[in-house]
Amino acid sequence: MDAVSLLESIAKAFKETRLEVVLIGNAAAALDGAPVTTDDFDFMFRPTRTNIQKMRSAARLLGAALSQPEYPISKFYRMLNEQVGLQVDMMGVVDGVKSFESLRSRAGEVSFGSASLLVADLKDVIRSKKIAGREKDRAVLPVLERTLGLKEGRR
């Protein structure tokens, strides 16, 4: 399925609420050129009190229910709108990422409609998956590394 309309809605919601986020995970890898799929959108953000309020507003704009599935042990929030197939996972901490600022400094901006999203660099996505080490992360690493190699002209 084409994610473009959901990405436009998500980008617009974050723009209107002025919430700074960086797209990570397989969605970021796909936008970076990797032939991978996903059923959700993972973002990193700074979980300050203000940003959490902004996130609540963004969830309302997206018609999504907001939950904290692993409360109180992690800074992980989920926005879910099953009617349109939207799942946005918001993370304050990401494996292999030193800080939000470091991730953002290497992210690229991609336009969707009237808004844009910062998309993590493929190297950061690869590092994060290596550190996370889950079976599904390890399974996708070869194709991500191949994509990075071809992007960098290493044929």
């Binding site: 399925m1 084409d2 994610a3 473009v4 959901l6 990405l7 397989n26 969605a27 796909a30 936008l31 970076d32 050129g33 990797a34 032939p35 991978v36 799929t37 996903t38 059923d39 197939g85 690229g108 991609v110 336009s111 969707f112 998309v119 994509t147 071809l150 992007k151």
Partner: peptide
């Protein structure tokens, strides 16, 4: 995929 601009690489969503 790399020949496309990033904003066109959007056919990745599973329902």
């Amino acid at each position: 995929r790399l020949r496309l601009p990033p904003e066109k690489r959007t056919h990745f969503l599973r329902m």
